[in-house]
């Protein structure tokens, strides 16, 4: 079926099976491999995308659910400059190791800081608790989000 949606600010019209997983549409059909898959069952958060501004798990969404939506993936998070301040903070504070959870982490952080300008460390931990990371122990991710919040996004 034909599906029309906005992806990272650009209108897309794609012809795809309605029950195709959104993560496959994004990664395979549209070639944006920044969205990662690590469990395929909604347990790890690696495949997080923003749907009309809210974080959703693209491994649990089907193509038909994209119709009329505005989608932002990790590739579309940057504003005018090369990098979003959250991304800069992740680099600066050592929040990235293998990097596989990073895109999802950045997107949930983006959502958190939009809702809560000055989150406490506990609030940050809660906000990212649906996103698994096996490398960092989360502490430097929390540091990065805390620092990004202080820069007034």
């Amino acid at each position: 079926m034909k599906i029309r949606f906005i992806l990272n600010g650009e209108t897309k019209v794609i012809d795809v099976e309605a029950d195709r997983r959104v993560i496959d549409v994004i990664r395979e059909d549209l070639g944006l491999t920044g969205t990662k898959e690590a469990c395929g069952r909604g347990e790890c958060g690696s495949c997080t995308i923003l749907v009309d501004g809210s974080p959703k798990l693209s491994c649990l969404m089907l193509a038909a659910q994209l119709e009329g939506r505005e989608i932002i993936t990790i590739e579309g998070i940057k504003k005018d400059s090369d990098m979003h301040p959250i991304q800069e903070a992740f680099i600066k504070h050592g929040a990235v190791q293998c990097g596989f959870c990073t895109p999802g982490m950045v997107l949930v952080s983006f959502d958190l800081l939009k809702r809560n300008k000055k989150p406490s460390r506990d609030e940050i931990r809660e906000a990212i608790s649906g996103n698994l990371c096996r490398c960092t122990g989360y502490q430097k991710i929390v540091d990065a989000i805390e620092a990004a919040a202080k820069r007034e996004l």
């Binding site: 491999t33 940057k78 992740f90 990073t102």
Partner: peptide, 21 residues
Amino acid sequence: IPRIDAFNKVRGLEKYASDYH
């Protein structure tokens, strides 16, 4: 020295083995 690999990883631009298609 901030990790060089983080610059691509944080933007979803690093190509892992699983990203080939």
